[in-house]
Amino acid sequence: MKMRVAAAAVASAALLLSACAANESGGEAPGGDSGSGLTGTLTGVGASSMASAQEVWVANFQTTNPDVTVNYSPDGSGAGREAFAGGGADFAGSDRAMTAEEVAPEALAGSRCAEGSTAMNLPVYISPIAIIFNVEGVDELQLDAETLAKIFKGEITNWNDPAIADQNPDAELPDLQITAVHRADDSGTTENFTDYLNVAAPEVWDAEADGEWPYEGGEAAPQTSGMVDTVTNGTGTIGYADASRAGDLGVAKIKVGDDYVEYSPEAAAAIVEESPKVEEAGLSPNDQSIELDRLAEGDVYPIVLVSYAIACDSYADPNTAALVKSYLGYIASDEGQQAAVDAAGIAPLSSAVSEAVAGSIAAIQ
């Protein structure tokens, strides 16, 4: 996938998930070695998709490291990458990996990385992207890639269109205009969704994968919470969001081969297992980014996001390096992944991916 280089800037801290209550709650929780001697403040900015997981990760880590404050601001993937490159964050959360060009030393000259350092992409959060909808009287919906692409491109505009009706013979589809909702911000969720549409329905979706919405029309909503609120409060609405945030909204099944597959952590994990590691000249030797195979068949769910923690190979400040290694080591651990399974319904890292990520984190200096 071709990605644009984000301009270096400091992201806004609209919402800080510092989980200060964790420091007041007492009790034991996973998240590092209490008595480790870690002190200081760690700042992350990035994907709103992993906000629920970051809340529990931060709370657990601070409980067992009471002299550490972790702030994670879910301003969106684009904002996270910009903050990291521009020196406004120690690590970023992003629903797509940074490219070799973006992690080159010259691109990180204003960051908190040591001079000459590159950065690494570490998968820590795997989740389906749910196609959420709000259509009165319709509880179940089945869609193939071509129909989904035409809906979001504005070529299918009514819920009783034959292309939808033919796939849903048992549904009472109303004569109602479709309101397709997309993200207003530069979003990794959008980038993963548009990547799927481009790969699975290229004759309709002729725009390459991009974090910024590529077509005119539809309704725009900021961040994951804005997407969910807009679909929930609208009429005849359809959108896309991290599955952990779907709530009581209807969620479409997506056609894979001859079957329609419902999203699940297991189906999301299955497609990740079928996908190779990215091989791109210039990436850090410790990079663990994944090239998702959107056309894999079987019991897989193809609209998946892999969210990355993006960290320096080497930090200018040794204490920051120690904090990053400890925090990222926790969230990628079995304990950290299970905490996110319980809080956000993610698909935990496989043992092979977890081992590779742990090795990369251990190499941070």
Rank of each mutant, 00 (worst) to 15 (best):
N286M: 13
L295V: 12
V135S: 04
M98Q: 14
D242Y: 01
A207Q: 15
P66E: 07
P128I: 08
G26M: 08
V45S: 01
A200R: 10
A97W: 15
T194Y: 08
S73A: 14
D206S: 14
G137T: 09
R81Q: 12
P123M: 03
Y263A: 05
S307F: 02
G226V: 07
A321L: 04
G110A: 12
G359S: 08
D139H: 09
S244Y: 00
A321C: 11
A130P: 01
T157F: 00
A184R: 08
F133L: 05
N60D: 13
L17N: 14
S34W: 01
A309F: 11
A114V: 02
G234Q: 07
V10P: 01
V204H: 00
N168K: 12
E106C: 00
A59V: 09
N158D: 13
I156K: 09
A322K: 15
N168C: 10
V199I: 14
V324G: 08
G137Y: 06
D258S: 14
D170M: 08
S350E: 07
I156L: 04
T63C: 08
D258A: 11
P30R: 02
M120D: 06
P285L: 14
S48V: 01
E155T: 11
A14D: 15
E24D: 12
Q54L: 10
A47P: 02
A9Q: 13
V199Q: 12
A201R: 06
A344I: 00
F84C: 08
K253R: 11
S264M: 06
S289Y: 07
S360I: 07
D210I: 01
W205S: 03
I156R: 08
E219P: 01
T157G: 02
K253Y: 00
S94M: 10
A22D: 13
A180E: 07
E203V: 00
W205I: 03
A83E: 01
N23K: 14
M227T: 09
E279M: 14
I364N: 03
N60H: 08
F84V: 09
A163M: 03
F91H: 13
A358Y: 02
G37E: 02
D259N: 10
S307D: 15
D175T: 10
A362V: 04
M3K: 15
L16S: 15
S36L: 02
G80S: 04
W57P: 05
G76F: 03
A180D: 04
A119Y: 05
T99E: 10
Q167C: 03
E155I: 02
G37M: 03
S52W: 00
S264T: 14
A104W: 04
D195M: 07
I131R: 03
S351M: 00
V10F: 10
L141Y: 04
P318W: 04
T69G: 00
G35E: 04
S351E: 15
V341I: 09
P302F: 05
A47F: 01
